[in-house]
């Protein structure tokens, strides 16, 4: 693997006696959409603030593109585009003036590039209106626009789907995946919306109480033939079906009028044949994939999300 674009090394943040972030170590490669998942108050935004230099670390080191955010801030931050929390823009300026404002602060952003970005986020029609007349979704788009103006290698988005309608979310998701795959940039997305992360990210880090609990790769399709998965059978006589399962040497868990067994593909087919042969009606067979939500609840010990 090439050098990671972001390296967090034993990052710790203490405010007073309270430890907000505890010894967080994380590497992000280019070309990946990386999710940062955690309940509210787990330290997601604090971590992001430290990554962009808005907050100082108590100890540890963050490097972006190989440059330390502490000692070589300007070189490090040149590679970063970000929205921290809500996309707050200057409300009394137009969308275009806002973009010009941020373009002036970074070398090499041409008026053509500004136009290109406006088209990309689909704000052509309203860009010369004042931002105070924008809906939250439009502000979010403008926020994304200012973040990608200077073609950063790392895009940090804090809760980017907040306030977007389903079409907007889908659009953003597709766009982020395209950015990471085609332009090879790293996208760092924080969220507590699990289903969203599942669709958007390649990998997800789960954080709780300032500690990194787990980093998981998200399977984007692809069936595993051998391993046992939870499979749900919807039948008319679950008690009898359970007996059939027992005959085949499998424990079945009853869930209402359904049975859940842990089995591989071959067994599922065999079991179904036996059920039908025994005169039990099978209305449906479903693979219960463990969703990110289940995994999340599993690793965070069921702490309430949202």
């Amino acid at each position: 693997m090439e050098q990671p674009i972001v390296q967090l090394q034993q990052v710790t943040k203490r405010i007073g006696k309270k430890t907000i972030i505890n010894n967080l170590t994380l590497d992000l490669p280019l070309g990946e959409v990386f999710g940062f998942l955690g309940p509210n108050g787990s330290g997601k935004t604090t971590t992001i603030r430290m990554m962009v230099g808005l907050m100082a670390m108590t100890s540890g080191e963050i490097k972006i593109g190989g440059f330390s955010i502490r000692s070589e801030y300007q070189k490090a931050i040149r590679n970063v585009g970000a929205i921290v929390e809500n996309p707050e823009m200057y409300k009394y300026l137009t969308g275009y003036q806002n973009l010009v404002h941020f373009a002036r602060m970074i070398e090499g952003v041409t008026p053509e590039r500004i136009q290109e970005v406006i088209t990309l986020v689909g704000l052509e029609a309203r860009i010369h209106d004042k931002v105070k007349t924008y809906s939250l979704g439009m502000r979010q788009r403008l926020g994304v626009a200012q973040a990608i103006l200077h073609r950063p290698k790392l895009l940090i988005l804090d809760e980017p789907t907040n306030g977007l309608d389903p079409a907007g979310i889908r659009e953003l998701r597709d766009y982020l995946r395209q950015l990471s795959k085609e332009e090879g940039i790293a996208v760092f997305v924080s969220s507590h919306l699990l289903s969203e992360m599942e669709l958007m990210c390649d990998r997800v880090a789960i954080i709780q109480n300032g500690k990194l609990i787990d980093v998981r790769t998200i399977n984007q399709g692809g069936m595993d033939v051998e391993s046992n998965v939870h499979t749900l059978f919807e039948v008319d006589k679950p008690a009898e079906a359970a007996e059939v399962a027992a005959e085949l040497g499998k424990a079945a868990i009853r869930e209402g009028s359904s049975l859940v067994i842990e089995a591989n593909r071959e067994f599922v087919a065999d079991f179904n044949a036996r059920l039908v042969a025994s005169g039990i009606k099978v209305y449906g067979i479903r693979v219960q994939t463990k969703s990110l939500e289940d995994q999340f609840l599993e690793v965070t010990g069921g702490e309430r999300i949202v």
Binding site: E85, N86, E88, M89, K91, E107
Partner: peptide, 12 residues
């Protein structure tokens, strides 16, 4: 307004 966050994360 919170714009300070966008203002400070520039190479300045």
């Amino acid at each position: 307004s919170g714009t300070i966050k966008l203002l400070l994360i520039r190479p300045w």
